[in-house]
Amino acid sequence: MSVKEEAKNLLGKGMDGVLFYQMKDGSAIPHLFTSKDIDEMPDVREIPDSERYPLSDILSKLLMRFSSAKFGIVARGCDERAIIELEKHQQIDTSRVSLIGFACSPELAKICSCSKPYTESLADEMNEAQEISRGIESVERMSTPARLGFWLSNFSVCVKCMGCRNICPLCFCKECSLQDEDLVESGVLPPSIPTFHLLRAIDMAGRCVMCGLCEEACPAGIPLRTLYGKVSEIVREELGYVPGTRGVKSPLEELGSSVGSDDDLKS
C-alpha cells in the first residue's frame, strides 16, 4: 500500500491531517495534508534526498497549537526516533499521533552515516545495520593538541546563526543556555569558543537522535555530526543509553544509578 493510501486511511479514521512534504517547483516543502488536498500528496520516492526538514518538531508545534486534534505523520527513521525521544520529555502526546514509516534511500543513509535509516515498523524487512563511522576515529587518531587545534579552527568560523539549535528537533527549551549572558558573551563573533559549541554538545548528551539536520543547516560547515556522535558514543558506552529507543529515559535526566553497581562508583 502506498503512503498516500495509508494517509487517506488515517484521514478516514478521524485524523485531522497528515504531515509530509508537498512538491512545489521541484522542491519538497513540509505540508499538512487534509482531506481537501490529500490527492496531491507525493510518493516517498519523489522526495529529493537532500531535502529533509524537522517534521517531528513541526508535529510537536501543531499538537501544542491544536490541543485536541489528531495528526498522522509520514516519517523517516530519524523523525521517528525524535518523536520517541520528545515523548520522553513530554513534548509530544503520541496518543494523538499515528505514524506511517518509510525507509531512506541507501545513498541518503550513506551521506547521513545513519545506522537506522528506517522506522521500527520496517525493521524486519531491512538488512542488519552496519557499524558507521562519523569521522570520530580520524579525530581520535590526532594528538591532543592537534585535536584542540582542529576543533578550535572549526569553531572559530561559527557565525552564531543558531541554526543548529533552531533546526534541532530535540531543542525545545524555552530558555536556551546558548543565549545566557553569563555563559556566552553576546555581540562577539565567533561566540566564546569552545564553550559555545561544547555547551550544545553537552545538552545533546542523551538526546541527540543523529538526524544530522544541524550539520546540514550550518553555514560554516562545522562537523557537528562528529561532535554530537562522540557525545552519543560516550553516553552509549558509559551509561548504556541510546536516544530514540523505546523504554527508559536518559540516565542524565533521572536521579539514581541506572548502570553499574554502587561498588563501581566507589573506586
Partner: peptide, 18 residues
C-alpha cells in the same frame, strides 16, 4: 550519582576536543 554520570560525559567530551 548525577555528578558521576555527568562527570563521565564531560570528561569524555573534553578529551575528544583536545
Amino acid at each position: 550519582y548525577m555528578t558521576y554520570k555527568r562527570f563521565q560525559v564531560i570528561q569524555g567530551l573534553l578529551q575528544f576536543v583536545g
